[in-house]
Design a protein around this nucleic acid. Structure first.
Lengths: 313, 313
DNA sequence: AGCGATGATCCGTTGTGCTGATGATCGTGA
DNA sequence: TCACGATCATCAGCACAACGGATCATCGCT
């Protein structure tokens, strides 16, 4: 009895080309016909079958001289059976490859953050799911930019929406939207000045010291303002509700504001604070599924239309 | 038609060796490790992966220079998935081959004829089925020797029991049993002489003009006897029943006689008629499953034991 | 007996995979 | 910061194998 490891080496020399030759000969019943069909000479097929028999260790055809069909041996029949399965598998690879390349299938894990999750991501994912039902899109929300970069570098995310273009040599990003900061003030009371440098002493609503809020505070500091926060919440609609209630005003990225709220007045700051940039990032050198290109296109398209809406409003 | 799949131009250059390299690299995360595992140099693996990528038309790994693991691209992951299936299929081929070679599985179509079907075949098939449950044995009975030869030549039968060694260059046979003709006479009446030349005028039971009966008649003719048949039946037990009833005597091959019947007397002919030979035949040049060898062995063994039983009786 | 078709075999050329060595790139530790 | 080590790519050279074309042996058929 032969040992397993040795047996594993037996089929080491078996090649797909030989299986194709085997099937062709088995179907045609003739080496010459098979050769013609596969675009070889009869000599080549003869040698391929011989190599197959060498690799397998048994004759696969009973050859009868003269014009009689080549008949499969039992070993040959077994190989035909499995060979068909293997070539079918190969066909499946081909189909899968074509679907993948067409962007019809695949898996996409996308990072996001609050305002994008509300205003951009649902539309993008919705459109993508409609036109590419085979795609599996998963979204992960994180409000920590460092963690997003880490996740991108660790390949936990394929793509991620980010604020600002990350300054990392292994991250590349496409700008989607330039999102200006606006002043949100209660509709009930007289609005404060649109000049951010005059916000000193004005009661403010904001977020806890997340990176976004820190950016705002820093910008205000630059114009000599130390904002006086009378309420902080991570939730943008809570912030806006507090503004609506007249507790104070807020400096928010426009994307985070519900522009249809009649209870607040939204004013462009003048002079403006440096706007935040929303981008889509990926790890440099990481090959994504072709459908990721479509995701980027849709994200750009949705962000453009958001820009238009904002301009109209 | 399935045929189209075989001729698919796509992935024509993909080879099993490349899939093995792909899987090894994907698992080891390193070209060099994979090379060591597969017994190649790193250069060879690098070239194999390059060839794979050329065949597929896409990069399968995101290579990062320096000591970082090679990461699969989506296309690579797809190929790994199907590659595993294909290599599993290859393992299945290997297992199937081992089973086949061990004689554990396979299909066997065996020709037979009446007396063998009663006294030999059941025992052989029974033993074979017990020790090789995976075998599929099918038996076909025919009492026309010419048809048996035709079926063997047409590969409708793998093996066949035959009377006499067929005189055909494409048939080869192994002798199993030398089966003498015996005189079967009623127990009730005085038995006729054991000398076949004295059977003239004795009322005889026989078969219709099948090949076996013709052989008997010809042998009797040679010793100057023209048998007087008072009854003919194709069924051996019907013949024996008629003898038991005293209608006449019969010259039968011993294998066809129920030796345990107390109603008849079985006598060896003296001088004997030329005995018939029972053999197992196959088409020359036809490769049978390995289990066929075991079938032959069992047939020989069973026939030997039948010979012993007869000698004791 | 000759003809045609079959597959095996031989031979020369071409092609291709492998090895060994080298190059380019990056991370890491001194 | 620099050198080292590890990574994979690439190159050159060699050996082997696959292919095509020709020929041969064998058989069925006319």
């Amino acid at each position: 009895m032969i040992v397993n490891a040795y047996d594993a080496r037996m089929l080491r020399d078996l090649e797909i080309r030989q299986l194709r030759a085997l099937l062709a000969v088995a179907e045609e019943g003739s080496f010459a016909k098979a050769a013609e069909r596969l675009g070889f000479t009869q000599s080549a097929i003869s040698q391929q079958i011989a190599a197959l028999e060498r690799a397998v260790g048994d004759k696969v055809f009973d050859r009868q001289a003269g014009p009689r069909k080549a008949q499969l041996t039992p070993v040959g029949a077994l190989l035909v059976e499995h060979g068909q399965a293997m070539l079918a598998q190969l066909q499946a690879v081909d189909d899968g490859l074509r679907s993948l390349r067409a962007g019809e299938v695949g898996r996409l894990v996308v990072g996001s953050f609050q305002s994008v999750s509300v205003n951009v991501l649902p539309e993008v994912v919705g459109r993508l799911r409609t036109e590419r039902p085979g795609l599996a899109v998963r979204a992960v929300e994180s409000d920590d930019p460092d963690d997003v970069v880490r996740a991108l570098l660790a390949d936990e995310l394929d793509l991620s929406f980010v604020v600002g273009v990350p300054d990392h040599p292994d991250i590349e990003a496409w700008t989607l939207l330039v999102d200006p900061f606006v002043l949100v003030s209660p509709a009930c009371c007289p609005a404060p000045s649109a000049d951010p440098s005059l916000l000193d002493g004005v009661p403010m609503i904001g977020q806890p010291s997340c990176s976004c809020q820190l950016t705002i505070d820093e910008s205000l500091h630059r114009v000599g303002v130390t904002p006086d926060y009378v309420f902080r919440s991570n939730d943008n609609s809570a912030v806006q509700a507090m503004v609506r209630a007249g507790l104070g005003s807020a400096v928010m990225p426009r994307l985070a504001v519900d522009l249809h709220d009649p209870g607040v007045i939204v004013t462009d700051l003048d002079p403006p604070l440096p706007p935040r940039v929303v981008a889509l990032a990926k790890r440099r050198g990481r090959t994504l599924i072709p459908a990721a290109d479509r995701f980027l296109e849709l994200a750009q398209s949705v962000c453009e239309s958001i820009d238009s809406v904002v301009l109209v409003a």
